[in-house]
């Protein structure tokens, strides 16, 4: 599934990184704890989270996430979005779906769990 398909499927809004929506998502990782993202995420996955602070964006970069989707209609403060636009091309979406439903819907469409196999 591409990010563009996911956007349509979840009725999500793109906050930045419109140019990268053709990225293909095979795996996803759902989490609200930065340390757990740093410890357990593999790479090239879609990060699903309720956290919308600047740490999440930095963390997404550190773990080489393909994109980030904020759940429950949450969105970061405007200044956070501005910083991302300036420094990064990572696509960021927001959906009204809660994390549970977001995972359920993507899982039903064949998105797999992200698993760390090295590190």
């Amino acid at each position: 599934m591409t990010l563009r398909e996911i956007q349509a499927y979840l009725g999500a809004e793109v906050l930045c990184g419109e140019g990268q929506l053709d990225r293909e998502v095979h795996e996803a990782f759902a989490c609200d704890l930065i340390s757990e993202m740093l410890a357990s995420a593999g790479s090239h996955m879609l990060l699903i989270t309720s956290l919308t602070n600047a740490h999440v964006i930095h963390t997404a970069e550190v773990i080489d996430a393909l994109g980030v989707i904020f759940v429950g209609g949450r969105r970061p403060a405007e200044d956070v979005i501005e910083i991302v636009k300036k420094n990064s091309s990572i696509p960021i979406l927001t959906t009204k779906c809660q994390m549970f439903d977001c995972c359920g819907l993507l899982f039903a469409r064949g998105v797999q769990a992200d698993r760390k196999d090295s590190l």
Partner: peptide, 9 residues
Amino acid sequence: TAFELSGLL
């Protein structure tokens, strides 16, 4: 993982 368990549930 939490993603998978959410999907299964």
